[in-house]
Amino acid sequence: MDVIVSQLFTGASTGAVLLLVALGLALTFGQMGVINMAHGEFLMAGAYTAYLTQQAVSNSDVSLLIALPLGFLVAGMLGLLLEMTVISRMYHRPLDTLLVTFGVGLILQQVARDVFGAQPKAVASPTWLHGQLDLLGYGYPVTRLFIVTIAVGCLAGTAAVLKYTALGRRIRATVQNRDLAETVGVSTRGTDRVTFFLGSGLAGVAGVALTLVTATVSNLGTSYIVPAFLVVVAGGIGQIKGSVIAAFALGIVGAFLTYYTSGSLATVLTFVLVVAFLQIRPQGLFTVRTRSLA
């Protein structure tokens, strides 16, 4: 019983990190079909924003809260810039986009290394995130709880934007049928840009949150980009709820596998499970009824 509770919690916190990292990708890749390999570097941009904010606002109790919206803006603007200069020329060419954005990612990493140095930067976590919360006899770290909260907040925000706002309707219309959306007067180019801004911004928020659990280094994104794609692919392209379920499923399954086997084997088994799952359901958990995605 203890094992089940502790691994459920550990898995859920891994899942929350995965979800947070994959949420932006679920918009840019899932909704728009852009394979943006530089997404991981937007995480990094968010993490360094948290670091710089902390340098400017020496009070670590508040700097994290300031960094969250700032990280969103910084990564969002980076994304917008990338969309306008590079990706907009490459729609309908997924493989070209993949290679170019991969290159952009490498450039961003090296720039960060030149600016901030190769050493990881320590970002102090606020004192109100120290300690643990006792849940069902399991000491649950408050930092992880905070990450779950941010993930849920971002998720709710994204879902609300997609569902209730005019922008959300335009995004969904563009995803479901670009030509038809254009004929009714939706500026699909403008919609693309805003979607990409939002998706990249979410990566920035995730990056700020990641400073709580991992090192702030220039190659921060590389460890998260693969799991993030895995979540979106397994969850089903074009569906946010698929990503949510996939993130938590991967987190929890991974935790149990790690517990009963070993860390490395668990990574392999997780991949095997996802590949096997995609054999049965190549479209992922959920699929959106659409005439054209690209």
């Binding site: 890749f29 079909g33 394979i35 390999m37 997924p94 493989l95 993949l98 590389t222 980009i225 693969v226 794609f229 895995l230 979106v232 692919v233 392209i237 074009g238 991949f271 590949v275 995609l278 190549p282 479209q283 992922g284 699929t287 659409t290 005439r291 054209s292 995605l293 690209a294």
Partner: peptide
């Protein structure tokens, strides 16, 4: 299931598998 979606999913799977292979 739409053909484009399937192709996109296939490309993404290749990316994921390829990346993890190159990582190790």
């Amino acid at each position: 299931m739409n053909l484009n979606t399937r192709r996109l999913a296939a490309v993404a799977s290749v990316v994921v598998v390829g990346l993890s292979a190159s990582a190790c």
